[in-house]
Design a protein around this nucleic acid. Structure first.
Length: 434
DNA sequence: TCTGGGGTCCTAGGACCC
DNA sequence: TCTGGGGTCCTAGGACCC
């Protein structure tokens, strides 16, 4: 079916574009090392429990997909090239891509590291119809950054996203308004963003596999199968979805987690790791100019069973000491039940901008002390990298007095602008008091 | 050598208040 | 006396996305 081209009888302009970088991480690695050209390349962890974060197109033709366990990928391609991720570099390039988009189109909504929606209806006078704008953007990204991208266009963002996926690699597909239904009908419901394995199962049970079939189903049946999300998905299926671009929303949570190749069995070791994670999260908060009110500890047992335990402070904070206290007290409640730990993580939620948070009036001397010290450490870390500093004994708030190993190399030099250390509330306590 | 790490959003139950 | 209902906050879990 040729869906690109004529404007369609409704006359509505397919002015919502979705731009998606092709195999983003893998494309960057291939660009930077010409020997990788044409080879099955994946970016990801090479360890026993590693998974594929991104796969080059030669790797994809062998059946390799992102999120696949690395062991399976190796079986599919014994000559697989595994490249460790360079997240900071990807982030820098991502920022550059978004800048390029912003130079052409005023209304850009970044939705992940490698994709964005653009509303180009206001840019037509200057740059022409959506097709022309899409080609301009793709050409600039290729010329300036040496990277391939794909663009989908439609009257709705959901359909634009589906179109960009079908334009890959290195292509463009604009769906005219009048041909939206025709375009969607044969596609699997799984292409809809928000329809994952569970929703697919639920739909399959009522005999629905394609978007065309979805459109024929009575609304009441759909609601029984999908629950409250039914109207949204139905609107997409019949082409009436007109969700506009949202303004980029502020970060809502931030955290770090780690899966070990071999399960941790020593509670002291777990505690050491999560206190280090708490420090890392606190540093990210300060760098981003945030404070948090709720700290979440996540633990996964060897059988995959996952629990989360959270604790809400009565004053927001970005202090590593506060976060460590919370996380350790949450761990103390669970350690007897969790004998072996496959994964542990620390996350801060209910983020607020640090500047908008009232500083507590009575800073005691010790609190002011650690606040200054943590800010000084942040500055040193920004300049010299994480390995340059371990926490000294003056700040050893780890209750069991365990020696802390040097911090993990999660934030190398040049990871971002120095953040303003935010005001912190030093008198926060664990609300549930355990 | 069977499943990572970063997130968002939603739901449900209990506590607590009025 | 023996019991409603709404609102909000907190906690926990799960589906889903890249």
């Amino acid at each position: 079916m040729d869906v690109s081209g004529d404007a369609g009888s409704t006359g509505e302009i397919p002015g919502i574009l979705h731009l998606d970088m092709d195999a983003f991480f893998a494309s960057i690695e291939v660009r930077d090392d010409s020997r990788l050209q044409g080879l099955p390349v994946v970016v990801g962890g090479a360890g026993a429990r590693g998974v594929v974060a991104a796969a080059s197109y030669p790797a994809r033709t062998r059946g390799i997909r992102s999120a696949m366990p690395m062991a399976s990928a190796r079986r599919l391609a014994p000559d697989l090239v595994i490249v460790p991720p360079r997240i900071d570099l990807y982030r820098q390039i991502s920022a550059r891509v978004m800048e390029l988009l912003g130079d052409v189109v005023a209304d850009v909504e970044q939705i992940s590291v490698d994709e964005a929606f653009l509303d180009v209806r206001g840019a037509r006078r200057l740059f022409g119809p959506p097709e022309q704008i899409a080609e301009l953007l793709r050409r600039r990204i290729r010329e300036e950054l040496g990277l391939p991208s794909s663009v989908g266009g439609s009257v709705s963002r959901a359909v634009a996203k589906i179109a960009s996926a079908r334009a890959k690699p290195d292509g463009m597909l604009i769906v005219p308004a009048a041909r939206t239904a025709e375009f969607l009908a044969p596609l699997s419901v799984s292409v809809i963003s928000g329809v994952g394995p569970r929703a697919q199962d639920a739909l399959a049970r009522i005999g629905v596999r394609t978007i065309g079939q979805l459109r024929e189903i009575p609304r009441s049946t759909l609601t029984r199968a999908l629950g409250p999300r039914a109207p949204e998905i139905a609107a997409l299926a019949d082409g009436s979805d007109r969700t506009g671009l949202g303004r980029r929303t502020r970060d809502k949570s931030l955290g770090t987690e780690r899966t070990w190749d071999e399960d941790l069995t020593d509670p002291a070791e777990v505690r050491r790791c999560i206190t280090q994670m708490a420090d890392d999260v606190a540093r990210q908060l300060r760098r981003g100019g945030f404070v948090t009110r709720t700290v979440v500890l996540k633990l996964r047992a060897p059988d995959g069973a996952t629990i989360t335990r959270s604790s809400t402070l009565d004053q927001p904070t970005s202090s590593g000491e506060r976060l460590r206290e919370q996380v350790v007290s949450l761990w103390e409640r669970e350690r007897s039940a969790m004998r072996r730990v496959r994964l542990a993580g620390v996350r801060a939620t209910h983020l607020e901008p640090a500047s908008g948070t009232p500083v507590q009036s009575e800073l005691n001397a010790r609190a002011a002390g650690w606040q200054d010290l943590e800010a000084a450490m942040d500055r040193a870390l920004e300049r010299f990298g994480t390995r340059s500093l371990g926490r000294g004994s003056t700040l050893s708030a780890v209750p069991d007095g365990t020696q802390r190993s040097p911090a993990s190399p999660t934030s190398g030099p040049g990871t971002g602008p120095t953040g303003q250390p935010g005001p912190v509330g030093p008198h926060t306590t664990d609300r549930d008091g355990r």
